[in-house]
Amino acid sequence: MDSSIVISVNKLVKKFGNFVANDNLTFEVGSGEIFGFLGANGAGKTTAIRILCGLLEPTSGDIIVAGFNGYTQRDKIKANIGYMSQKFSLYEDLTVWENIRLFAGIYGVSRKLIQERANLLIENLGLEDYRNRPVADLPLGWKQKLAFSVAMIHKPTIIFLDEPTGGVDPITRRRFWEMIYEAADAGTTVFVTTHYMDEAEYCNRISIMVDGKIVALDTPSALKAEYNAESMDEVFVKLARNSQRV
């Protein structure tokens, strides 16, 4: 296997009783890649992410995430990935510094390194004045950026972003994507789900899920050419229209 592949999924199936949430998914994600994971609500995205994050055990298929087996080494997977969800996921009543220390501590970052990285992070985000203030005082855009930085505090191989820009204004979204690019440039693989099709264009490659299956997987420009569409929006609608579950 190519050493630059960090996520390798082969014939992944996940069933809940008779319901097939993930039907024979096969894909690979390379190191430093920004991989867009698209699909309408109920298409099975969340289930797939939970499996990739080590939260769920697959029914069948081969899964390797960050070099670890998706059945037997789920704890190792957890330690080597970062995760940020659509819900804002820091503790509002803790200060910026306390949030950083808590999550870095949970991921086993040493005390000395926590100090160093926290200082750097606070400096980069320009949050010096907020260091000892509760996160609740921060404007939403900053909270989101802070949440992203905190999810990256242990320098994970892969970061999973589950609709990270939901409910955020366009300017903040743009800045957020700048941070995603920086992370990818530094070698972190970014696995992102989104409902914004303009964001899909920012990804290196995207997969589109319909009814538990991956129906398209390529670069945005190749997909637009294949489906004869002007934008990703058009591609998505053409594919998702045939869904049986919606």
């Binding site: 957890k78 990935i81 969800s85 503790y91 509002e92 999550f103």
Partner: peptide
């Protein structure tokens, strides 16, 4: 409710 449980569950904490 806040969504932090999800983050904790994804973390290495058992």
């Amino acid at each position: 409710e806040m969504g932090t449980m999800e983050v904790l569950l994804v973390s290495p904490l058992k």
